[in-house]
Computed example of a mutant assay.
Amino acid sequence: MDHYAQGSDTVSALQFPCTIFATQKRMDDYSASDMLCGDLSESQLKTQFHLVDVSTRANPYSLTKITPFSQPQSMFYGSRGEGEKISRQQCAEILFDEFRHLSQSFSLYGPYKSLIKKMITHMQNGEGAPFSSMYLDNALKSQILNDRSAENSTRLRLSDAFKNHIDWENKCYPLARKAELCKAISEGRLPKFDRFQDNFNGMGITIHDTWATHITIKSLKVNNDRYRAIVHYRVQDHFGLDGEDILKLKFSQFRFFRIWFVLQRYKSIGFKPFITNMETTIEITGERSEH
């Protein structure tokens, strides 16, 4: 611990790196309800979760292809009937293809447009391994830097805490005022992707809310009434659905989520959900307050 003489007092300086915030929900939480896999029977899916009409292409319960009646003169034209028997693996492949196809309406434009398809394919082939992407890291950084709400932005709130609580005479941040940095985060709003544009740019469907966040100050330099802090954000989310999700109309009305839930939770299929990792480092600079 560094100590600085200040008259007859001794100031203990905060040491770096220093984690100033960690959510109560923990990192790498494979016991979370949205990480369950292959735990539900056909009757549970149908009765508890009302998942009867799942796919337009294959029936995961009877393992048959669904084919439209293609003769225009048929009175059943346009309705669907069950066709040839398929294997469980073939059925899963058909459902994943439809899952990817349906994802397009949630991911219409922008640099993150392709992320949801990559994450669906990772669910199909990754066997539950964690997922990371420079696109996710960039999205996190952009969200933090572009949040200009003085009330909510963790970056702006930290900036105020540095400015107001740095010991400018001793060029350090006092250990005794660490709580002010923690408070700056806990009373703000953690980075998440629930803005209007996230409904269409691919981030709302891939991440939306987040599970766990750790924020660490890597370094702080104080010189000539100015400071420069390097702050690291580590964020995790789960690419998985729990029972509460699929019982909400905003999820169950979309075939996209019905297919996802069955692929993840049906005993006969049971593809593993996974943890999504994001991280970024930002710089916060400022100068001594006037007051």
Rank of each mutant, 00 (worst) to 15 (best):
H165Q: 08
N164V: 05
T210C: 12
L158S: 02
N170Y: 01
L156H: 09
H214L: 11
H208F: 12
T154A: 09
S159K: 15
Y173N: 03
E180R: 12
C172S: 06
N152I: 00
S153Y: 07
V231P: 01
C172Q: 05
A161V: 05
K183Y: 12
K171D: 06
L190W: 02
F193Q: 08
T206M: 03
R189D: 11
N223P: 00
G202W: 02
K221S: 15
I207T: 08
A184V: 05
H208A: 15
F200Q: 09
T210E: 10
R157M: 10
H214V: 11
I215P: 04
E169Q: 13
T206S: 15
I230S: 14
H165Y: 15
V231R: 01
Q236Y: 03
W211Y: 15
D209C: 04
R195K: 14
P191L: 08
D237M: 01
C172V: 09
R195E: 14
E169D: 13
N152E: 14
D167F: 07
A184G: 04
V222D: 05
S153W: 07
H208C: 13
E180P: 00
I205P: 00
S219F: 04
G202F: 04
K221A: 15
T213I: 12
I230F: 03
T154G: 02
D225F: 10
Q236G: 04
N201K: 02
L156C: 05
L220I: 05
